[in-house]
């Protein structure tokens, strides 16, 4: 059950929760780009501070953010190791008979790790504080100008919203099928990679079959409720930009200016 938590919306009330999803999406998207412009200790510290402020404003337990870091810990370890071993420039920091570590390697490893952590903080902020339905509404609205070039913004948003709606259902189903096959003696824990992948076939096939069945049922139910695409539809939800949203974008402008001033 625990892995469900990663990236899941936490339904509490906070300043961040109440923002318009569009401004949050734009803010997070721009922050993610900004990360790649940081290039010294000052700029990374600035971004980390902004991230931590976001965490504080979200009123969500720091533990949950740490938990979402578990997802990328292996990526961080892997790239760190990669850089420590293969980057060979700058002065030598440590020399052992099997491995020589250079200053540049340590620097690169640190930069990559910090970037991953920043990415994860901002992405989690968006996912934790924005309900799936707000997120898809926001995306539909942001993408709708693309309709002029025949981009199916409504269909895209509908697909995404249905996918989000069914994630908990499919997760519960996966859990149940794994347990059922385990109870029939299936072994998911031992053997080499090939054997382990093969062990998941008894899970994947039933999961696919049930997903098709669900899709068919859902399509029938949608048809019975008069769904016929985006044309002629009205919407219950309306999005509105308020003062807080403008404040958020002003904050971003300040951070961006500061960053470009501080970077080397």
């Amino acid at each position: 059950m625990n892995s469900v938590m990663i990236g899941q919306y936490i339904p509490i009330d906070s300043w961040l929760h109440r923002l318009d999803p569009r401004s949050k999406c734009i803010f997070v998207f721009c922050m993610l780009i900004l990360i790649f412009f940081a290039n010294n200790v000052e700029t990374y510290t600035l971004l980390l501070l902004v991230g931590l402020m976001g965490v504080a404003l979200s009123r969500i337990s720091v533990l949950l953010f740490l938990r979402s870091m578990k997802l990328i810990i292996w990526m961080i370890l892997f790239t760190t190791l990669f850089h420590l071993i293969f980057t060979q420039s700058g002065s030598i920091v440590l020399q052992t008979p099997i491995l020589t570590i250079y200053e540049e390697g340590v620097r690169q490893a640190a930069i990559i790790s910090v970037r991953f952590i920043l990415l994860m903080i901002f992405a989690s902020l968006l996912m934790f504080t924005t309900s799936p339905i707000d997120l898809t509404d926001g995306l539909e609205s942001l993408l709708s100008p693309l309709r002029r070039w025949r981009f199916p913004a409504h269909e895209f948003a509908m697909m995404m919203s249905i996918a989000l709606r069914f994630i908990p259902t499919l997760w519960a189903e996966t859990d149940k099928i794994i347990k059922a096959q385990k109870a029939r003696g299936a072994d998911f824990e031992s053997g080499n990679v090939y054997r382990r992948v093969k062990a998941y076939i008894p899970v994947l096939i039933p999961l696919m079959i049930s997903s098709f069945r669900r899709a068919e049922d859902l399509a029938t139910a949608m048809e019975a409720r008069g769904y016929a695409g985006g044309v002629g539809r009205t919407k219950l939800r309306v999005l509105s930009i308020r003062r807080a949203d403008i404040l958020l974008l002003v904050c971003f402008a300040i951070v961006a200016t500061a960053l470009f001033w501080m970077r080397k």
């Binding site: 919203s161 709606r165 049922d217 859902l218 409720r225 016929a228 919407k235 219950l236």
Partner: peptide, 18 residues
């Protein structure tokens, strides 16, 4: 398999929106 939206209110709205 017949609930479309991610909240109760939005799901009731679905047919009306259609």
């Amino acid at each position: 398999n017949q609930i479309v939206a991610t909240t109760v209110r939005d799901d009731v709205a679905f047919g009306l929106e259609n």
